[in-house]
Design a protein around this nucleic acid. Structure first.
Lengths: 143, 143
DNA sequence: TGCGCTTTTGACAATCATTGTCATTAGCGC
DNA sequence: GCGCTAATGACAATGATTGTCAAAAGCGCA
């Protein structure tokens, strides 16, 4: 029970590595994905540590977590404020989008029903122009 | 490898049971949850079958699936059209909400970036009035 | 009504992401 | 440098979901 206020975190090589990878890669990646990237770079970081570090970063609001229908959670370093994502379901590329109207709508709807402590998730999935262009060879015969 | 789409389904006792439970319970429930309810009722349905039936129903658009941050997927029978949910994170009670403005916003944002085949998920979490009221004492059993 | 083909079922194993464990290692203040 | 304590990491454990495959049950058809 001696909680160090604020400075309770130690700066370790592993944490820096995870942080660095997140800064350099583009789009959303799973924890295992990031772990593989670290290994390729020669960084020796345990998978458990990757998970914990990501958890901590997500907890601190420094990265965003997304749970696509597929299964694994995806992480990405994002701008700090509240925003949402437009994600390509083929290549993973993500665009940050802001929707003040949506925020307002969500709050209003929740308030109408008397809900408090409201949070919301908005995710838009689609196929980005590049992937859509390379994908059109797929309707032989059909259904 | 030519399963009859649409009419290829047979009506079985198990499928009817799952369907019935979904009609009678309120709010979102996990697959394992529904399986437990079926067992309590004396219906002998395998867990695998529950999963498959739910998958089929979700595929047919007859039920809604939600993946809360917690982990398991939750299922609920809903009205057919496209809509979203305002869910109490304490008791699970859910309110269907429609947001034409949000749909339009999502489509517009996606189109601006050239994305096609767009889908989106919107979920609002909060604490419903009843849970918010009873949360200071947390004594009344409620149900 | 009975038969047979095909789908469905269900017990169990397999998978797979994520979390817990715990001995070892390494920051950081002194 | 020393020591305390948090962090690490290999491994096991968890737990939801999916695959497997033989047995059972629907439904069309004779």
């Amino acid at each position: 029970m001696t909680p160090e206020p604020g400075g309770g975190l130690r700066s370790t090589r592993q944490r820096a590595a995870v942080h660095a990878v997140l800064s350099e890669v583009d789009g959303f990646h799973s924890a295992q994905d990031l772990h593989a990237i670290l290994r390729e770079r020669g960084e020796r970081v345990g998978l458990t540590t990757v998970y914990r570090t990501l958890q901590g970063l997500a907890d601190a609001g420094e990265i965003d977590v997304m749970r696509p229908p597929g299964g694994e959670a995806l992480y990405r370093r994002c701008s700090q404020g509240h925003h949402h994502h437009l994600v390509c379901r083929t290549c993973g590329q993500a665009v940050e989008v802001a929707g003040p109207a949506v925020e307002a709508w969500a709050d209003r709807v929740a308030a109408q029903h008397g809900f408090v402590e409201v949070s919301h998730t908005v995710e838009i999935f689609g196929t980005c122009p590049r992937c859509a262009a390379g994908e059109q060879m797929r309707d032989t015969g059909g259904q």
